[in-house]
């Protein structure tokens, strides 16, 4: 069902817009500690930029192939989030208590800041990959459909 879009306007505009969306998503992700936003919104926007690419350039386009590669990272975000908590546990603190992360040259507040940043990256990765994965689930892309005749 995912075929490349015919219109030149749509293709040109999305070629311009996709990097902008990704830049804004990264801004929202890394400045979530200073303004509105954070891991959730940043992840959704990263995912949506790739979804736009998939819908416009079709199943043979670069975004679709990149998204297929990204889908192998399903669960990495959750591992990052829980892993930061686990590192806190290993370093002798409580689970998800970032002040026990032993980062040199960082006081208590700075450690919590870095812990929040790392877990936000984890959330963003998890949500972006999940959004792409749900889009692939909802749109049947049969690799075998064109080459192999159905047997029944």
């Amino acid at each position: 069902m995912i075929n490349p879009h015919d219109s030149v306007i749509v293709r040109t505009m999305s070629r311009m817009l996709i990097p902008l969306i990704q830049l804004f998503a990264l801004y929202v992700l890394f400045f979530g500690q200073y303004g509105p936003g954070g891991g959730f919104v940043g992840g959704v926007m990263l995912g949506t930029s790739l979804i736009l690419g998939i819908l416009v350039y079709g199943r043979d386009g670069v975004p679709c192939r990149a998204a297929r590669k990204l889908m192998h990272g399903d669960g990495v975000g959750l591992i990052i989030f829980a892993g930061v908590g686990g590192i806190c546990l290993v370093m002798g603190g409580q689970f998800l208590n970032y002040s026990s992360l032993e980062i040199p040259l960082a006081d208590d507040a700075r450690r919590r800041y870095l812990g929040i940043l790392m877990t936000q990256i984890g959330v963003a990765v998890d949500i972006a990959v999940t959004a792409i994965s749900i889009v692939f689930s909802l749109s049947p892309i049969n690799d075998t459909e064109d080459t192999e005749p159905s047997r029944d």
């Binding site: 500690q33 303004g35 509105p36 954070g38 929040i116």
Partner: peptide
């Protein structure tokens, strides 16, 4: 937490 956005610090920490 050194984080200016209270919502983020509550959510993540």
């Amino acid at each position: 937490t050194d984080t200016e956005n209270v919502v983020t610090s509550v959510l993540m920490d």
